[in-house]
Design a binder for these strands. Sequence first.
DNA 1: CTAAGACGAGACGCAACCGTTCCGTCTCGG
DNA 2: CCGAGACGGAACGGTTGCGTCTCGTCTTAG
Lengths: 202, 202
Amino acid sequence: MLGGMSRSPAVRPPGGPILQDAVTDAIRTAFFEELAEVGYGRLSLEAVARRAGSGKAAIYRRWPSKEAMTIDLITQVSIAATDTPDTGTLRGDVLAFLTAVDAALRHPLVSRILPDLFAAGVHHPNIAASLGDRVGGARREKAVNVLRRAVERGELAPGTDFELGLDLLAGPLYWSTTIRQAPADPARLERLADKVVAALAA
Amino acid sequence: MLGGMSRSPAVRPPGGPILQDAVTDAIRTAFFEELAEVGYGRLSLEAVARRAGSGKAAIYRRWPSKEAMTIDLITQVSIAATDTPDTGTLRGDVLAFLTAVDAALRHPLVSRILPDLFAAGVHHPNIAASLGDRVGGARREKAVNVLRRAVERGELAPGTDFELGLDLLAGPLYWSTTIRQAPADPARLERLADKVVAALAA
DNA sequence: CTAAGACGAGACGCAACCGTTCCGTCTCGG
DNA sequence: CCGAGACGGAACGGTTGCGTCTCGTCTTAG
Protein backbone atom coordinates (compact mmCIF):
# COMPACT_ATOMS: atom_id res chain seq x y z
CA MET A 1 0.00 0.00 0.00
CA LEU A 2 2.92 2.27 0.67
CA GLY A 3 5.87 3.13 -1.50
CA GLY A 4 6.09 3.42 -5.24
CA MET A 5 6.01 0.83 -7.97
CA SER A 6 9.11 1.19 -10.13
CA ARG A 7 11.92 2.97 -8.46
CA SER A 8 15.10 3.02 -10.49
CA PRO A 9 17.44 5.11 -8.39
CA ALA A 10 19.86 5.83 -11.21
CA VAL A 11 17.74 5.48 -14.34
CA ARG A 12 18.75 8.91 -15.57
CA PRO A 13 22.22 10.38 -15.94
CA PRO A 14 22.97 12.51 -12.90
CA GLY A 15 22.03 16.11 -13.57
CA GLY A 16 20.60 15.16 -16.94
CA PRO A 17 17.03 15.39 -18.15
CA ILE A 18 14.29 13.10 -16.85
CA LEU A 19 12.67 11.20 -19.64
CA GLN A 20 10.98 7.93 -18.72
CA ASP A 21 9.61 7.06 -15.31
CA ALA A 22 6.17 6.20 -14.00
CA VAL A 23 6.33 8.84 -11.28
CA THR A 24 7.59 11.49 -13.66
CA ASP A 25 4.82 10.63 -16.08
CA ALA A 26 2.20 10.98 -13.36
CA ILE A 27 3.64 14.32 -12.30
CA ARG A 28 3.77 15.60 -15.86
CA THR A 29 0.18 14.60 -16.52
CA ALA A 30 -0.97 16.12 -13.25
CA PHE A 31 0.94 19.29 -14.03
CA PHE A 32 -0.81 19.86 -17.33
CA GLU A 33 -4.23 18.97 -15.96
CA GLU A 34 -3.75 21.30 -13.05
CA LEU A 35 -2.45 24.01 -15.38
CA ALA A 36 -5.56 23.68 -17.53
CA GLU A 37 -7.83 23.94 -14.50
CA VAL A 38 -6.42 26.82 -12.49
CA GLY A 39 -3.89 28.49 -14.77
CA TYR A 40 -0.23 29.21 -14.25
CA GLY A 41 -0.64 31.93 -11.67
CA ARG A 42 -2.67 29.76 -9.35
CA LEU A 43 -0.80 26.55 -10.00
CA SER A 44 0.50 25.05 -6.78
CA LEU A 45 3.01 22.25 -6.63
CA GLU A 46 1.05 20.88 -3.71
CA ALA A 47 -1.96 20.39 -5.90
CA VAL A 48 0.16 18.81 -8.63
CA ALA A 49 1.61 16.32 -6.14
CA ARG A 50 -1.83 15.61 -4.73
CA ARG A 51 -3.21 14.96 -8.21
CA ALA A 52 -0.24 12.88 -9.22
CA GLY A 53 -0.56 10.79 -6.08
CA SER A 54 2.99 11.61 -5.16
CA GLY A 55 4.79 13.51 -2.47
CA LYS A 56 6.02 17.04 -2.98
CA ALA A 57 9.57 15.82 -2.51
CA ALA A 58 9.27 13.79 -5.70
CA ILE A 59 8.71 17.05 -7.56
CA TYR A 60 11.46 18.99 -5.84
CA ARG A 61 13.81 16.12 -6.52
CA ARG A 62 13.28 16.74 -10.23
CA TRP A 63 12.92 20.47 -10.62
CA PRO A 64 14.13 23.33 -8.45
CA SER A 65 11.11 25.59 -9.00
CA LYS A 66 7.72 25.96 -10.59
CA GLU A 67 9.14 28.05 -13.40
CA ALA A 68 11.93 25.58 -14.22
CA MET A 69 9.40 22.76 -14.16
CA THR A 70 7.11 24.63 -16.52
CA ILE A 71 9.86 25.42 -18.97
CA ASP A 72 11.16 21.86 -18.96
CA LEU A 73 7.75 20.28 -19.42
CA ILE A 74 6.45 22.54 -22.17
CA THR A 75 9.76 22.06 -23.95
CA GLN A 76 9.43 18.28 -23.80
CA VAL A 77 5.87 18.29 -25.04
CA SER A 78 6.23 20.84 -27.81
CA ILE A 79 9.13 18.99 -29.38
CA ALA A 80 6.55 16.72 -30.91
CA ALA A 81 5.31 18.60 -33.95
CA THR A 82 4.32 16.89 -37.16
CA ASP A 83 5.93 18.14 -40.30
CA THR A 84 3.79 19.71 -43.00
CA PRO A 85 4.39 17.89 -46.27
CA ASP A 86 5.07 19.44 -49.64
CA THR A 87 1.70 19.21 -51.37
CA GLY A 88 2.97 20.79 -54.56
CA THR A 89 0.99 24.02 -54.32
CA LEU A 90 0.98 26.96 -51.96
CA ARG A 91 -2.70 26.56 -51.27
CA GLY A 92 -2.26 22.90 -50.44
CA ASP A 93 0.62 23.66 -48.12
CA VAL A 94 -1.28 26.47 -46.43
CA LEU A 95 -4.30 24.27 -45.91
CA ALA A 96 -2.13 21.49 -44.51
CA PHE A 97 -0.47 23.92 -42.15
CA LEU A 98 -3.76 25.41 -40.99
CA THR A 99 -5.21 21.94 -40.51
CA ALA A 100 -2.24 20.88 -38.41
CA VAL A 101 -2.43 24.00 -36.27
CA ASP A 102 -6.17 23.57 -35.92
CA ALA A 103 -5.72 19.98 -34.80
CA ALA A 104 -3.23 21.09 -32.16
CA LEU A 105 -5.49 23.87 -30.94
CA ARG A 106 -8.44 21.49 -30.76
CA HIS A 107 -6.79 19.47 -28.02
CA PRO A 108 -8.81 20.39 -24.93
CA LEU A 109 -5.74 20.79 -22.75
CA VAL A 110 -3.81 22.81 -25.31
CA SER A 111 -6.60 25.27 -25.93
CA ARG A 112 -6.95 25.90 -22.20
CA ILE A 113 -3.27 26.03 -21.48
CA LEU A 114 -1.91 28.12 -24.34
CA PRO A 115 -3.52 31.43 -23.40
CA ASP A 116 -2.28 30.96 -19.88
CA LEU A 117 1.26 30.29 -21.00
CA PHE A 118 1.25 33.38 -23.18
CA ALA A 119 0.00 35.39 -20.24
CA ALA A 120 2.64 33.84 -17.98
CA GLY A 121 5.23 34.84 -20.54
CA VAL A 122 4.34 38.47 -19.97
CA HIS A 123 5.43 38.22 -16.34
CA HIS A 124 8.16 35.58 -16.65
CA PRO A 125 10.70 36.30 -19.39
CA ASN A 126 12.17 32.81 -19.19
CA ILE A 127 8.82 31.26 -20.00
CA ALA A 128 8.31 33.68 -22.87
CA ALA A 129 11.74 32.78 -24.22
CA SER A 130 11.06 29.07 -23.93
CA LEU A 131 7.71 29.45 -25.62
CA GLY A 132 9.23 31.45 -28.44
CA ASP A 133 12.16 29.12 -28.99
CA ARG A 134 10.53 25.74 -28.54
CA VAL A 135 6.84 26.00 -29.27
CA GLY A 136 6.92 28.90 -31.70
CA GLY A 137 10.18 27.83 -33.22
CA ALA A 138 8.96 24.43 -34.32
CA ARG A 139 5.76 25.73 -35.87
CA ARG A 140 7.60 28.65 -37.30
CA GLU A 141 10.04 26.50 -39.17
CA LYS A 142 7.22 24.57 -40.84
CA ALA A 143 5.59 27.80 -41.88
CA VAL A 144 8.79 29.24 -43.24
CA ASN A 145 9.23 26.10 -45.32
CA VAL A 146 5.77 26.57 -46.76
CA LEU A 147 6.64 30.09 -47.84
CA ARG A 148 10.12 29.17 -49.05
CA ARG A 149 8.79 26.39 -51.25
CA ALA A 150 6.21 28.76 -52.71
CA VAL A 151 8.94 31.23 -53.61
CA GLU A 152 10.93 28.45 -55.25
CA ARG A 153 7.87 27.42 -57.25
CA GLY A 154 7.37 30.99 -58.34
CA GLU A 155 4.01 31.25 -56.56
CA LEU A 156 5.31 34.03 -54.37
CA ALA A 157 7.59 36.92 -55.25
CA PRO A 158 11.24 36.46 -54.23
CA GLY A 159 11.18 39.44 -51.88
CA THR A 160 8.21 38.15 -49.88
CA ASP A 161 8.12 39.28 -46.23
CA PHE A 162 8.17 35.98 -44.34
CA GLU A 163 7.48 37.58 -40.99
CA LEU A 164 4.28 39.16 -42.22
CA GLY A 165 3.35 35.90 -43.88
CA LEU A 166 3.72 34.01 -40.63
CA ASP A 167 1.43 36.45 -38.87
CA LEU A 168 -1.19 35.86 -41.55
CA LEU A 169 -0.81 32.11 -41.26
CA ALA A 170 -1.01 31.91 -37.50
CA GLY A 171 -2.96 34.95 -36.38
CA PRO A 172 -6.48 34.46 -37.74
CA LEU A 173 -6.73 30.83 -36.69
CA TYR A 174 -5.35 31.43 -33.22
CA TRP A 175 -7.66 34.39 -32.79
CA SER A 176 -10.83 32.62 -33.86
CA THR A 177 -10.13 29.34 -32.11
CA THR A 178 -8.56 30.39 -28.86
CA ILE A 179 -9.72 33.95 -28.25
CA ARG A 180 -13.11 33.90 -29.93
CA GLN A 181 -13.61 30.28 -28.83
CA ALA A 182 -15.10 29.40 -32.22
CA PRO A 183 -13.78 26.06 -33.49
CA ALA A 184 -13.11 25.96 -37.21
CA ASP A 185 -14.68 23.23 -39.32
CA PRO A 186 -12.91 21.91 -42.45
CA ALA A 187 -14.96 24.09 -44.80
CA ARG A 188 -13.95 27.15 -42.84
CA LEU A 189 -10.30 26.12 -42.99
CA GLU A 190 -10.64 25.82 -46.78
CA ARG A 191 -12.02 29.33 -47.07
CA LEU A 192 -9.42 30.65 -44.68
CA ALA A 193 -6.72 29.00 -46.81
CA ASP A 194 -8.07 30.77 -49.89
CA LYS A 195 -7.92 34.11 -48.18
CA VAL A 196 -4.50 33.55 -46.65
CA VAL A 197 -3.11 32.60 -50.07
CA ALA A 198 -4.58 35.78 -51.54
CA ALA A 199 -3.04 37.81 -48.74
CA LEU A 200 0.37 36.20 -49.17
CA ALA A 201 0.30 36.87 -52.90
CA ALA A 202 -0.68 40.53 -52.47
CA MET B 1 -2.21 62.34 8.61
CA LEU B 2 -5.09 60.00 9.08
CA GLY B 3 -8.39 59.82 7.32
CA GLY B 4 -9.27 60.46 3.70
CA MET B 5 -9.48 63.66 1.71
CA SER B 6 -12.86 63.80 0.02
CA ARG B 7 -15.47 61.64 1.63
CA SER B 8 -18.91 62.03 0.17
CA PRO B 9 -20.96 59.52 2.10
CA ALA B 10 -23.76 59.41 -0.44
CA VAL B 11 -22.20 60.68 -3.66
CA ARG B 12 -23.53 57.71 -5.57
CA PRO B 13 -27.05 56.36 -5.79
CA PRO B 14 -27.42 53.52 -3.30
CA GLY B 15 -26.74 50.24 -5.02
CA GLY B 16 -25.85 52.00 -8.23
CA PRO B 17 -22.53 52.04 -10.04
CA ILE B 18 -19.54 53.96 -8.73
CA LEU B 19 -18.28 56.49 -11.22
CA GLN B 20 -16.38 59.45 -9.81
CA ASP B 21 -14.52 59.45 -6.56
CA ALA B 22 -10.90 60.04 -5.61
CA VAL B 23 -10.69 56.81 -3.66
CA THR B 24 -12.34 54.82 -6.40
CA ASP B 25 -9.96 56.32 -8.94
CA ALA B 26 -6.96 55.35 -6.85
CA ILE B 27 -8.29 51.81 -6.47
CA ARG B 28 -8.98 51.49 -10.18
CA THR B 29 -5.51 52.70 -11.12
CA ALA B 30 -3.90 50.43 -8.56
CA PHE B 31 -5.98 47.51 -9.81
CA PHE B 32 -4.76 47.82 -13.39
CA GLU B 33 -1.16 48.42 -12.41
CA GLU B 34 -1.22 45.41 -10.15
CA LEU B 35 -2.92 43.37 -12.84
CA ALA B 36 -0.18 44.30 -15.29
CA GLU B 37 2.51 43.32 -12.83
CA VAL B 38 1.41 40.00 -11.43
CA GLY B 39 -1.48 38.89 -13.62
CA TYR B 40 -5.03 38.01 -12.72
CA GLY B 41 -4.28 34.73 -11.02
CA ARG B 42 -1.87 36.28 -8.56
CA LEU B 43 -3.76 39.52 -8.12
CA SER B 44 -4.49 40.15 -4.46
CA LEU B 45 -6.90 42.76 -3.21
CA GLU B 46 -4.53 43.30 -0.37
CA ALA B 47 -1.83 44.46 -2.79
CA VAL B 48 -4.34 46.63 -4.65
CA ALA B 49 -5.33 48.37 -1.42
CA ARG B 50 -1.68 48.78 -0.46
CA ARG B 51 -0.85 50.34 -3.82
CA ALA B 52 -3.92 52.53 -3.78
CA GLY B 53 -3.06 53.76 -0.32
CA SER B 54 -6.45 52.69 0.93
CA GLY B 55 -7.85 50.14 3.32
CA LYS B 56 -9.20 46.83 2.17
CA ALA B 57 -12.61 47.81 3.44
CA ALA B 58 -12.77 50.58 0.86
CA ILE B 59 -12.60 47.90 -1.82
CA TYR B 60 -15.08 45.55 -0.21
CA ARG B 61 -17.44 48.46 0.24
CA ARG B 62 -17.53 48.78 -3.56
CA TRP B 63 -17.31 45.27 -4.96
CA PRO B 64 -18.21 41.92 -3.43
CA SER B 65 -15.38 39.93 -5.01
CA LYS B 66 -12.29 40.04 -7.16
CA GLU B 67 -14.17 38.71 -10.16
CA ALA B 68 -16.99 41.25 -9.87
CA MET B 69 -14.43 44.00 -9.50
CA THR B 70 -12.57 42.86 -12.58
CA ILE B 71 -15.68 42.66 -14.71
CA ASP B 72 -16.88 46.07 -13.57
CA LEU B 73 -13.56 47.78 -14.15
CA ILE B 74 -12.74 46.32 -17.54
CA THR B 75 -16.27 47.16 -18.62
CA GLN B 76 -15.85 50.79 -17.57
CA VAL B 77 -12.51 51.17 -19.30
CA SER B 78 -13.34 49.39 -22.50
CA ILE B 79 -16.38 51.51 -23.13
CA ALA B 80 -13.96 54.10 -24.48
CA ALA B 81 -13.25 53.06 -28.04
CA THR B 82 -12.70 55.54 -30.82
CA ASP B 83 -14.84 55.15 -33.87
CA THR B 84 -13.20 54.33 -37.18
CA PRO B 85 -14.24 56.92 -39.76
CA ASP B 86 -15.48 56.26 -43.26
CA THR B 87 -12.40 56.99 -45.39
CA GLY B 88 -14.18 56.21 -48.63
CA THR B 89 -12.28 53.07 -49.50
CA LEU B 90 -11.97 49.62 -47.99
CA ARG B 91 -8.21 49.90 -47.80
CA GLY B 92 -8.44 53.24 -46.03
CA ASP B 93 -10.95 51.86 -43.56
CA VAL B 94 -8.88 48.75 -42.93
CA LEU B 95 -5.76 50.81 -42.36
CA ALA B 96 -7.64 53.10 -40.00
CA PHE B 97 -8.97 50.13 -38.09
CA LEU B 98 -5.56 48.45 -37.86
CA THR B 99 -3.99 51.71 -36.77
CA ALA B 100 -6.57 52.15 -34.04
CA VAL B 101 -6.11 48.60 -32.80
CA ASP B 102 -2.35 48.99 -32.94
CA ALA B 103 -2.54 52.17 -30.91
CA ALA B 104 -4.65 50.40 -28.29
CA LEU B 105 -2.27 47.43 -28.15
CA ARG B 106 0.70 49.76 -27.84
CA HIS B 107 -0.49 51.01 -24.47
CA PRO B 108 1.96 49.39 -22.04
CA LEU B 109 -0.75 48.41 -19.58
CA VAL B 110 -3.09 47.06 -22.25
CA SER B 111 -0.46 44.88 -23.88
CA ARG B 112 0.45 43.36 -20.54
CA ILE B 113 -3.10 42.97 -19.30
CA LEU B 114 -4.91 41.64 -22.35
CA PRO B 115 -3.24 38.22 -22.53
CA ASP B 116 -3.92 37.77 -18.86
CA LEU B 117 -7.57 38.63 -19.22
CA PHE B 118 -7.97 36.19 -22.10
CA ALA B 119 -6.32 33.53 -19.98
CA ALA B 120 -8.54 34.39 -17.03
CA GLY B 121 -11.54 34.03 -19.33
CA VAL B 122 -10.62 30.37 -19.82
CA HIS B 123 -11.15 29.69 -16.13
CA HIS B 124 -13.84 32.27 -15.33
CA PRO B 125 -16.79 32.22 -17.76
CA ASN B 126 -18.13 35.52 -16.44
CA ILE B 127 -14.92 37.28 -17.35
CA ALA B 128 -14.92 35.67 -20.77
CA ALA B 129 -18.49 36.82 -21.30
CA SER B 130 -17.71 40.34 -20.20
CA LEU B 131 -14.66 40.47 -22.42
CA GLY B 132 -16.63 39.22 -25.39
CA ASP B 133 -19.57 41.56 -24.86
CA ARG B 134 -17.82 44.74 -23.84
CA VAL B 135 -14.29 44.74 -25.15
CA GLY B 136 -14.76 42.57 -28.19
CA GLY B 137 -18.21 43.91 -28.90
CA ALA B 138 -17.09 47.51 -29.28
CA ARG B 139 -14.17 46.69 -31.56
CA ARG B 140 -16.26 44.18 -33.38
CA GLU B 141 -18.92 46.69 -34.25
CA LYS B 142 -16.35 49.02 -35.79
CA ALA B 143 -14.95 46.18 -37.85
CA VAL B 144 -18.37 45.08 -39.02
CA ASN B 145 -19.07 48.61 -40.14
CA VAL B 146 -15.88 48.61 -42.19
CA LEU B 147 -16.99 45.45 -43.98
CA ARG B 148 -20.60 46.58 -44.34
CA ARG B 149 -19.56 49.85 -45.95
CA ALA B 150 -17.28 47.96 -48.35
CA VAL B 151 -20.17 45.75 -49.40
CA GLU B 152 -22.34 48.82 -49.98
CA ARG B 153 -19.59 50.38 -52.09
CA GLY B 154 -19.32 47.21 -54.11
CA GLU B 155 -15.76 46.57 -53.00
CA LEU B 156 -16.74 43.30 -51.39
CA ALA B 157 -19.19 40.67 -52.60
CA PRO B 158 -22.64 40.78 -50.97
CA GLY B 159 -22.25 37.32 -49.48
CA THR B 160 -19.00 38.14 -47.68
CA ASP B 161 -18.36 36.13 -44.53
CA PHE B 162 -18.06 38.82 -41.89
CA GLU B 163 -16.89 36.45 -39.19
CA LEU B 164 -13.96 35.31 -41.25
CA GLY B 165 -13.23 38.90 -42.17
CA LEU B 166 -13.08 39.89 -38.53
CA ASP B 167 -10.58 37.12 -37.82
CA LEU B 168 -8.40 38.43 -40.64
CA LEU B 169 -8.66 41.98 -39.36
CA ALA B 170 -7.89 41.22 -35.74
CA GLY B 171 -5.83 38.03 -35.75
CA PRO B 172 -2.55 38.92 -37.47
CA LEU B 173 -2.09 42.18 -35.61
CA TYR B 174 -2.92 40.69 -32.21
CA TRP B 175 -0.64 37.77 -32.92
CA SER B 176 2.36 39.82 -33.97
CA THR B 177 2.01 42.54 -31.39
CA THR B 178 0.94 40.66 -28.29
CA ILE B 179 2.11 37.10 -28.78
CA ARG B 180 5.20 37.63 -30.91
CA GLN B 181 5.93 40.86 -29.03
CA ALA B 182 6.91 42.60 -32.27
CA PRO B 183 5.47 46.11 -32.43
CA ALA B 184 4.25 47.15 -35.86
CA ASP B 185 5.53 50.33 -37.43
CA PRO B 186 3.34 52.38 -39.80
CA ALA B 187 4.93 50.91 -42.91
CA ARG B 188 4.20 47.42 -41.68
CA LEU B 189 0.59 48.39 -40.99
CA GLU B 190 0.34 49.65 -44.57
CA ARG B 191 1.58 46.35 -45.95
CA LEU B 192 -0.66 44.42 -43.59
CA ALA B 193 -3.61 46.50 -44.78
CA ASP B 194 -2.79 45.60 -48.40
CA LYS B 195 -2.74 41.93 -47.58
CA VAL B 196 -5.87 42.02 -45.46
CA VAL B 197 -7.76 43.77 -48.24
CA ALA B 198 -6.60 41.10 -50.68
CA ALA B 199 -7.73 38.40 -48.29
CA LEU B 200 -11.12 40.00 -47.77
CA ALA B 201 -11.66 40.28 -51.49
CA ALA B 202 -10.72 36.65 -52.15
C1' DC C 1 -23.16 71.86 16.29
C1' DT C 2 -24.11 67.41 15.79
C1' DA C 3 -24.73 63.00 13.95
C1' DA C 4 -23.81 59.93 10.08
C1' DG C 5 -20.76 57.75 7.42
C1' DA C 6 -16.67 56.93 4.67
C1' DC C 7 -11.93 56.91 5.50
C1' DG C 8 -6.81 54.55 6.56
C1' DA C 9 -4.92 51.42 9.43
C1' DG C 10 -4.49 47.18 11.06
C1' DA C 11 -5.67 43.03 13.91
C1' DC C 12 -8.49 38.92 13.74
C1' DG C 13 -9.03 33.71 12.68
C1' DC C 14 -8.78 30.84 8.86
C1' DA C 15 -6.97 28.60 4.94
C1' DA C 16 -3.59 27.53 1.36
C1' DC C 17 0.95 26.97 -0.11
C1' DC C 18 5.77 27.34 0.33
C1' DG C 19 10.24 24.51 0.65
C1' DT C 20 12.31 21.35 3.89
C1' DT C 21 12.73 17.47 6.71
C1' DC C 22 11.59 13.49 8.70
C1' DC C 23 9.52 8.63 8.67
C1' DG C 24 8.87 3.79 7.39
C1' DT C 25 8.33 1.17 3.04
C1' DC C 26 9.77 -0.81 -1.05
C1' DT C 27 12.93 -2.11 -4.87
C1' DC C 28 16.70 -2.45 -6.95
C1' DG C 29 22.13 -3.18 -8.08
C1' DG C 30 25.95 -5.42 -6.56
C1' DC D 1 21.43 -10.54 1.28
C1' DC D 2 22.24 -5.99 2.18
C1' DG D 3 22.92 -1.16 1.49
C1' DA D 4 21.59 2.85 -1.37
C1' DG D 5 18.13 5.51 -2.69
C1' DA D 6 13.57 6.88 -4.43
C1' DC D 7 9.00 6.48 -2.87
C1' DG D 8 4.25 8.36 -0.45
C1' DG D 9 2.91 10.60 3.45
C1' DA D 10 2.96 13.82 6.85
C1' DA D 11 4.45 17.40 9.64
C1' DC D 12 7.26 21.55 10.23
C1' DG D 13 7.52 26.97 10.63
C1' DG D 14 6.84 30.83 7.71
C1' DT D 15 4.37 33.60 4.46
C1' DT D 16 0.48 35.34 2.06
C1' DG D 17 -4.17 36.36 1.17
C1' DC D 18 -8.87 36.00 2.51
C1' DG D 19 -13.08 38.51 4.36
C1' DT D 20 -14.56 40.63 8.69
C1' DC D 21 -14.25 43.79 12.18
C1' DT D 22 -12.90 47.54 15.22
C1' DC D 23 -10.48 51.46 16.06
C1' DG D 24 -9.87 56.84 15.93
C1' DT D 25 -10.05 60.48 12.38
C1' DC D 26 -12.06 63.55 9.20
C1' DT D 27 -15.71 65.52 6.26
C1' DT D 28 -20.10 66.75 5.16
C1' DA D 29 -25.26 67.10 5.23
C1' DG D 30 -28.73 68.80 7.87
